[in-house]
């Protein structure tokens, strides 16, 4: 169990990246959803013991991470948002080095373990090539391999699917699901689909504040029967936006496909009921927060 109480982080400026986060995260996969600049990475770095908060506490199974970050490292797997490797090493050598730094051990020895992990992330063929020759997706997979190595009690993955193609993303989802069966996995992302697919529970963070903690099903359930979808011309869009709450719109073949939220009453003409998506809930929540702040 990860307990976060009153976590505040203020950067010089001042910039309040976190404005008092209270959160309890149980074992399993937990998503942290929010736009860019919302404070997700700041929170991840604090949990990984790489950033000192301004105030607040974080307990992992009773261990104070803020006071003793070194105690969490032996139980941590971490995939940062931005990272790199030594370009002159091969993927296998780089992973082997990280396994040694992390104090990982396996019955078959570390070189075999490194090979097996690379196999897990589909890098076996590129294992002996210098990392400098890897594509962005290959580097991301190597990062995933080092993050899942060992037996981390806490796995923090920050924007893990960036740079991955759809096949690799599916593979990663499976990996993450397997890993999350018996440990706490914290997934930070701005991609709603990731949360929708993987996370039984998630929190929405925006401008350093926690907006809500819920599950994808519950979030969708709350919008049941209130989401409608239709198409309007660009000329009529402004009138529509003034009359109802537009969740989002996108241009397709010259006309705007629009999803709207009508809490009660009939929808405008031409709109039909649509299954609410997690994305709808997220966007509405963000919009509500924006309106409240304004």
């Amino acid at each position: 169990m990860l307990q976060i109480r009153g976590l505040v982080k203020v950067y010089p400026g001042p910039i309040a990246a976190l404005q008092g986060i209270d959160l309890d995260i149980p074992t399993g996969l937990f998503g942290l959803l929010g736009p860019n600049g919302s404070g997700k990475t700041t929170l991840m770095r604090i949990l990984a013991g790489l950033l000192e908060p301004t105030a607040g506490s974080v307990l992992l199974d009773g261990v104070d991470i803020v006071a003793h970050p070194e105690r969490v490292r032996a139980r941590l797997g971490y995939l940062p948002q931005a990272f790199g490797f030594y370009p002159h090493l091969s993927g296998h050598a780089m992973l082997l080095h990280l396994l040694r730094l992390k104090g990982v051990d396996a019955p078959g020895g570390l070189p075999a373990l490194a090979s097996a992990l690379l196999e897990q992330v589909n890098l076996a063929d590129a294992a002996r090539r210098p990392v400098s020759g890897y594509s962005g997706g290959m580097r991301q997979r190597l990062g995933i391999a080092q993050a899942i190595a060992g037996d981390p009690a806490l796995l923090i993955v920050d924007e893990p699917t960036a740079g991955l193609d759809p096949e690799e993303r599916v593979r990663f989802y499976r990996l993450l699901a397997e890993v999350a069966e018996s440990r706490l996995v914290l997934l930070s992302t701005h991609i709603v689909e990731d949360v929708a697919t993987l996370c039984p529970r998630f929190a929405v963070i925006r401008y350093g504040r926690l907006l809500t903690t819920t599950s994808p099903a519950a979030a969708r359930q709350r919008l049941e029967g209130t989401v409608f979808e239709g198409a309007v011309s660009r000329d009529h869009y402004a009138a529509l936006a003034g009359a109802v709450r537009v969740i989002h719109s996108h241009l397709v073949a010259g006309e705007l496909r629009v999803r709207i939220h009508v809490p009660s009453g009939p929808p405008p003409q031409g709109f039909v009921a649509a299954l609410p998506l997690l994305e709808d809930a997220y966007l509405l929540l963000s919009d509500d927060d924006a309106r409240a702040a304004a």
């Binding site: 990984a48 790489l50 032996a74 941590l76 940062p80 931005a82 992390k102 104090g103």
Partner: peptide, 14 residues
């Protein structure tokens, strides 16, 4: 320079 710092610093090596 290489961006390896977050990975190394998060590792349990002292």
């Amino acid at each position: 320079a290489t961006g390896f710092a977050p990975l190394a610093n998060a590792a349990p090596v002292g």
